[in-house]
Design a protein around this nucleic acid. Structure first.
Lengths: 178, 178
DNA sequence: ACGACCATGTAAGGGGTTACATGATTAG
DNA sequence: CTAATCATGTAACCCCTTACATGGTCGT
């Protein structure tokens, strides 16, 4: 019940735990299949944060002994954890500027031969086309299920984003070829 | 001429120094007026990095004595620094997943009353509308100057991005009101 | 035989932000 | 009189990733 953990990993984990008890390993897997298009977590951070969540009383822990593997620690969100998550959900979202390395290279593009930047943009476009295809497939899977509305909307955000990137790449390529 | 600095701040600084010699203070100001829509730097990082760039021989430094202020250190990019920048510019851009806190809150939206999420989206939309207006104004300023093509394209990316966010917000709002 | 999956955790280290310390000048 | 601008730098701190350590089972 001591120092409140406050980083964003905290809330990602608490959120995933509202969908059922999970081990650290489960949390990683679940994050990869559900929120990975806008959120990544690593084991090296998940385990220490789970420990702090436990100390803060935001999660309970049960241990399942296993043979040939480390004990499996299963975490359950507590009412205090749920309250902490809700209070975070209600807080306003601070706008942040995301660093974009492609744009940084483009901005200093005059320092290299034009084909270098054109190639970067072509790769960037391809990457976002692949992402888009993935999002569209996953979107189709959840499109008609009203219980998956929130998930659907996060995928829709990805779709819009990729489409805008692709359109920009095309404009930029044209502009750089003149 | 010792340990190569390799972080991204390094290259942002080197890039800005190709446009003329600058002090740490100048670099911060310049970053804010040119690349701030996709890149932020803080003093607490600029000064130590400049020092390492100097030690690596990627920048030269001249000192201007001043009255009532600390000495002004002006940094000039060296040929070695320029080569380092170019080699970085030629390297492929690694795709990264950017954490998006709004989407994380949305994903766990069922944990709070619907109006909470709707309000977050409305704020998000407003914010991106304001950004869009700014980008459009700056884009108009550079639209006809072929020497500012790269800058123009980074602004265009911001415009596309904001438009896609706004369109998504509208779809999401409608979907959440049904 | 080899890799993937299961399962936890630590250690090292980098990258970055914020706050602090100092202080003169100038504009509103 | 207050805030902003100029100007440098340090210290504390957090957040997070990568690599390491360990090792059994299962599929191909």
């Amino acid at each position: 019940m001591s120092p409140k953990p406050v980083n964003r990993t905290t809330y990602a984990i608490l959120g995933l735990l509202t969908q059922g008890p999970k081990s650290g390993y489960d949390i990683k897997r679940e994050a990869e299949t559900t929120i990975s298009h806008f959120w990544k977590e690593s084991f090296g951070h998940i385990y220490p944060v789970l420990r702090r969540l436990h100390e803060a009383g935001w999660v309970d822990r049960t241990t399942e002994a296993q043979t040939g593997k480390p004990d499996r620690h299963v975490y359950h969100i507590t009412p205090a954890g749920r309250a902490a998550l809700q209070s975070w959900l209600r807080e306003p979202v601070e706008p942040v500027v995301t660093r974009n390395e492609l744009l940084l290279k483009l901005f200093f593009g005059e320092q290299v031969e034009p084909f270098v930047i054109r190639a970067h943009i072509a790769t960037y476009r391809q990457h976002h086309e692949a992402l888009l295809a993935g999002y569209q497939a996953r979107h189709a899977d959840v499109e008609t299920d009203p219980a998956k509305q929130f998930k659907r909307l996060t995928l829709l955000a990805g779709i819009h984003y990729c489409e805008s990137v692709i359109a920009w790449c095309d404009e930029a390529s044209t502009s750089l070829s003149d």
